[in-house]
Computed example of a mutant assay.
Amino acid sequence: MTDGTKEKATARRRGKPVEVWVTDEEKATITARAKEAGMARSAYLRALGLNTPVKSVVDLGAVSELAKVSGDLGRVAGLLKLWLAQKRGEGANAIDVESIMVEFRRLQVDIGMKMGAIVKAHK
């Protein structure tokens, strides 16, 4: 690796294969579930066969997306607050605006709780 390129790691041979006969539909399902877990099909089946927990990477992707949505909500609420400070007395009723702000905060809390539950379940 002196030339700055990475050498491909050689796959570890485990010894003997185990044949499992499945339908095309079952194979597709197994392949999809292994992909969701971020694993090769062989590693996925080995983990299931050895009763090792399989954790989905899809959930962590969802958490990342929820974090972005929560951030967007915060930015929208901040812009609304700034606009209200500059345009006091113009446009929307203050009570209506405050109820929207409360709803933004509630949504952010809900998103945070869902993200926490997903991450906790993933551990």
Rank of each mutant, 00 (worst) to 15 (best):
S99E: 14
V102E: 12
V109C: 02
G112A: 10
R88G: 02
E98V: 04
V102N: 12
L84M: 00
A77H: 10
L82Q: 10
I100C: 01
Q108T: 08
A117N: 13
D110L: 15
A92D: 09
V97D: 00
Q108P: 00
V109F: 08
Q108Y: 04
A92R: 09
V109A: 12
K87C: 03
G74P: 01
L73W: 03
M115C: 14
A92E: 13
D72E: 08
V119M: 14
M115R: 15
D72L: 08
A77I: 00
A85L: 08
Q86P: 02
A85Y: 06
G112T: 07
I100M: 11
M113K: 14
G78Y: 04
N93S: 13
Q108I: 07
G89T: 11
E103T: 09
A77Y: 05
V102D: 13
L80I: 10
V76P: 00
A94Y: 06
I118V: 15
K81L: 01
Q86G: 11
R88E: 11
D72H: 09
D72F: 01
G91R: 10
R75Q: 08
F104K: 00
G112F: 06
D72Y: 05
G89E: 13
V76H: 09
D96M: 11
W83T: 13
L82C: 01
M115L: 02
V109L: 10
V119Y: 14
R105H: 14
W83I: 01
V76W: 13
L82G: 00
K81N: 08
I118R: 04
G116T: 11
E98D: 09
R105L: 11
L73E: 02
V97N: 01
V76Q: 09
D110T: 15
S99N: 10
A92Y: 06
W83M: 10
I111F: 06
V97W: 02
V76T: 13
V119E: 13
L107E: 01
A77F: 05
K81E: 07
V97M: 08
E90L: 15
G74D: 09
A77V: 02
I100Y: 03
M101S: 05
L82F: 06
G91E: 12
I95Y: 11
I111C: 02
